[in-house]
Structures are given as structure tokens and as C-alpha cells.
Simulated assay, not measured.
Amino acid sequence: MNRSIHKIIDEQVKRWEMQKKRDEKSVDTCRVITISREFGSRGQQVAEALAHALEYDLFHHEILESMIKESQNAKVLLETLDEKGMNIVEDLVAELVHEHHLWPDEYSKILLRVLNTIGRHGNAVILGRGANFALKNINALRVRIVAPDALRRKVVQEARGLNAEDAQKMMVSTDANRTAFIRRYFNADTQDPANYDLVLNTGTLPVEKAVSIIQAALA
């Protein structure tokens, strides 16, 4: 695992431990934004710019996967909550499993615990990993970022140094994998707009404008 990711996780745990020691109550007032995105739609840029504008912590794929893969870290994360908060997270996980008729394996149980622990602490922008489904019962704004295929293909070409054909194949493959992930772990459909509070098209909205709209929705 990348050492800088370890450092980010350690620093996050320390911040939450300090919050716990100060007995800060953030359950009802916490703000969380989940961002789901089509591949190449600039969803990550929106998440990064939003976290910066709000001064929130950003939890992207690498950080979340590192937390999930290291089950010891997942336990440490859960323990940054008080006893009531820990019990609430476990109840939320059990409710999600029951409501979505899931057959949870070890990965999915840790995934749900990690995401709900982040949600309980708040002040977070969570990118991907089905956070909008995992945090169904937490005060969160659920955002979906989309864009026309032509724009997404161009973004992927420039970012990955690919030709148009290979960029298209990567788009299709990545979106299919994300859809399968959500179907497997949440028994849900990423394409259903009812799963989101906002659906923003970066084909017509610049990243900065998308961030402004999300901020306005939080007000």
C-alpha cells in the first residue's frame, strides 16, 4: 500500500479520535456528499474541487479501498465513534443487508462499516464505492455526475493517452464494472435517477458550476 495513503488514513483516524475526546456531537448536523459518476465525466475533479471549497475530507477510491482491505484499520475507524455511534453503525449495516436482501461477505461488511463510520463523522465528500446506497439512512446529499459519450471519450483519451477506440472500450468496461459492483454489493441500479438527489451533466456544466450547484443544494 502506498505510504502516503497510510499517512492519510492515520491522520484521519487521529482527527476523529480528537473529535471523540472533545465529545463533539455531529450525528444530526454532519454534512456528507456522495458522488457517483460515469467514467470520464470529470466526477473526480468535481469531488476534489467540492472538498476543497467546503474544507471537507475527500474519500476517494484509493483511500476507501485501503481502509477496506486493511480490516484492522476498519476496526480502528469504527472505534473512533463512541459506543452509541458504534452500535448505530452496526444497526445500519444490519438494516442495509436485510433491506437490500444482501448476502454479505467479509469485504462488503467492512465496506459498509467504513462508509457508515465516515458518514457518522460527517464533513466528508465520498467518491464512488456505492456510498449513496450505503448511507441511505444518514443525512447525506447524493450526487451523480454524467456527461455525453463524446466528451467522456475525449477526457479519457487525454488522461490516458489513448486513441478514440481504446478510450471508448475503457469507458464501456469501467462503467460495466462499476454497475456490476453496485449490483453485487447493494442490489441496486446506478442508472436509476431516483437513487440521487442531484444529477449534473458536466457536458453543459463546467466543474466550477457543478460545485456551486452542489453547495447551493446544501444550504
Results as ranks from 00 to 15, higher is better:
I214F: 05
R120F: 02
V211W: 05
E24N: 08
A134L: 03
Q12K: 12
T174P: 00
S4V: 00
H101G: 14
F186L: 09
V93T: 04
H60D: 10
N201S: 00
K136Y: 01
V125R: 09
A74G: 13
A74C: 09
S173G: 13
V114W: 08
A94Y: 09
A134N: 07
A150G: 08
R153N: 13
R184Q: 14
E99Q: 07
K209P: 07
F39C: 00
L54Y: 10
R129G: 10
T204M: 10
I126F: 06
D91C: 06
R129H: 14
L141Y: 04
L112N: 10
F39P: 08
L218W: 11
N132C: 11
A194G: 12
L96F: 00
N116P: 11
A147R: 04
I88Y: 06
V146Y: 08
V172C: 01
E158K: 10
L111F: 07
I138Y: 08
A53L: 13
G40F: 12
N187M: 05
A217D: 10
N116S: 12
A219S: 14
S108K: 02
A194C: 12
A74L: 03
P104C: 07
K14C: 10
R3V: 03
L127C: 11
K20P: 05
R153V: 11
R142G: 03
T174D: 03
V97F: 03
E62M: 01
E165H: 15
E90A: 00
H100C: 08
R113P: 09
E11L: 06
I110S: 15
A47Q: 01
K75C: 09
K69R: 13
E38G: 07
N187Y: 08
L77Q: 11
M1V: 12
L218S: 06
A74Y: 04
A216G: 03
I126W: 06
H61N: 12
D189F: 09
N123A: 12
I182T: 14
A74D: 05
I138F: 00
D91F: 02
T34I: 11
H121E: 15
